[in-house]
């Protein structure tokens, strides 16, 4: 049955494309629950891709994943120092971190591998089939014959749900995002909480980037994050700031991205760029509330402590 094969390969591609979005969006969920929107997430993704590539060349693919995550966290730390500790505008700071990250990752890559654009051939993280689960028809191979990064994303969902909604730390973190004044009055260290949340998001976005270079492609290309960090922020909204919802939303976007491959299998003349635009259009539709609305954390993107009136 050829249709069945198409469906199966579509699902495999969809999950593979969803994993980086899920990782980055799950991290960003924690950051936004703490009241910080990090447009610099895109920067963490590209640093993760480069850090993953360099780490993998030196120590192998698994250490590559780790170094990618750390590189993403470092970019997020820079963002946090400005936007949380110095309390600068979150939007402008995040934009600067993204622009700078795209520039400096290119600079590091070119200084290491030359300006001519060599094609890096990286050892990739192997796929690991989970026994039994991968035997489930149709969805089994798609969900359970993946690399470590996919299983990390799955595991993060119950873990983060438990952390955010069942622990005192999670409560404190959400309080810092909903009402920093009240949280502060109740003794929550708002600034420290927010900084940790942002760095965690950077760690996850870095892992997402490392997935791009070490699982998805096996190479590093400048600007290869290609807006994944931005889509992840839309995924958080679509997932209603809940880990389970965020994973589902990421799978939905992975599907939208994979659609181009499935459709091209049928008709090669379809306008390719329009399909590339599809995930972004769907993100906009999702934000417009076509798939239901929900409420953002009350203190999201607002400065803390509050700034005085502007001169």
């Amino acid at each position: 049955m050829p249709d069945f094969a198409v469906l199966s390969s579509f699902l495999v591609a969809a999950v593979g494309l969803a994993v980086p979005l899920a990782l980055a969006a799950l991290g960003e969920t924690v950051s936004e629950r703490a009241g910080v929107i990090n447009i610099g997430l895109e920067g963490s993704v590209i640093w993760g891709a480069l850090g993953g590539a360099l780490g993998s060349l030196a120590f192998g693919p698994y250490m590559g994943l780790l170094s990618g995550a750390l590189a993403g966290a470092a970019a997020a730390l820079l963002f946090a120092v400005f936007a949380v500790w110095l309390n600068t505008d979150q939007i402008i700071t995040g934009t600067a971190v993204t622009i700078g990250s795209l520039g400096f990752t290119g600079a590091v890559f070119q200084s290491r591998f030359g300006t001519t654009g060599v094609a890096l051939d990286l050892e990739t993280v192997p796929l690991r089939e989970l026994p039994l689960l991968s035997r489930i028809p149709v969805i089994g191979p798609a969900l359970f014959d993946q690399a470590l990064t996919a299983y990390l994303a799955y595991a993060m969902v119950p873990l983060l749900a438990w952390f955010l909604f069942r622990t005192r730390w999670g409560l404190a973190l959400r309080a810092a995002g909903e009402s920093p004044e009240a949280a502060h009055a109740a003794g929550v260290p708002v600034v420290r909480t927010r900084m940790l949340a942002v760095v965690f998001a950077g760690l996850m976005a870095g892992l997402a980037g490392a997935h791009l270079s070490l699982v998805h492609t096996g190479t590093f290309v400048e600007n290869m994050s290609a807006g994944k960090g931005f889509i992840a922020i839309a995924v958080v909204v679509l997932g209603r700031w809940r880990p389970g919802g965020v994973l589902a939303a990421a799978l939905f976007f992975g599907g939208a991205e994979a659609l181009q491959f499935a459709l091209q299998a049928f008709d090669a003349d379809l306008p390719y760029p329009l399909f590339l635009a599809l995930p972004y259009v769907l993100s906009l539709a999702a934000l417009a509330g076509w798939f239901g609305r929900s409420r953002a954390p009350e203190g999201l993107a607002l400065p803390w402590p509050k700034r005085g009136p502007q001169s």
Partner: peptide
């Protein structure tokens, strides 16, 4: 590409 980085700075 350094110029992009400098813009961010």
């Amino acid at each position: 590409v350094w110029v992009r980085g400098i813009e961010a700075l």
